[in-house]
Amino acid sequence: MALEDTRRLGCGRSIDQIWAGMDQPPTSHEEDCELCQAAKARMQKIKEATVALRESDLHNPEMTLPAERTNSIMALARAEARRSKRLVLRGTEYGTVEISEQALSSLIRLAAAAIPGIHSRRCRIEVQSDAEMGSTHLTINLRVATASGIDIPATVEGLRQKINKAIPAGVGIDAGTVNITVEDLYDV
């Protein structure tokens, strides 16, 4: 079976090689080789039909997921997202104030979006609350990807400062400890 599947023409070229080169101009070998030309001609119709199918499916408005399916997916995701970790910001006799880890990380992401050359990735936040519930210390662990070729230490420092301002402004507590890890580079 395996031999049959990698069949070769008399000239030594495999059918796979010819198929892979279908949409390219003939190689110098193919220009002279009748076997290759004949094989190419035989497969031309399949190639054309394949390309036509790919293109028509791609541009056919019927070949898309209906909006109500997308809405169902997002509605379920939204409902399940509410289970994210809660962090206690304040606890008094008037009641507690909690914030979801997600609400905090969205502020951090927004801060990161303002810094060119950085894409925020995963964000983990821990909170240590004082026994009297008067003070709260955050530990923010943010992973980022940076653009290749930028000054990483300066950019990361800029991000740290941005977060140090954004958390008090947006949440009303200090940013606490901000750990930033560069885990990847992306091409610009």
Partner: peptide, 20 residues
């Protein structure tokens, strides 16, 4: 009035507000 527990689930820009 007993305790009023508030849970902030998301922080978002309102249509009219300017993000910080």
């Amino acid at each position: 009035p007993g305790p009023v527990h508030v849970h902030i689930l998301t922080i978002e820009a309102s249509p009219g507000s300017i993000p910080r």
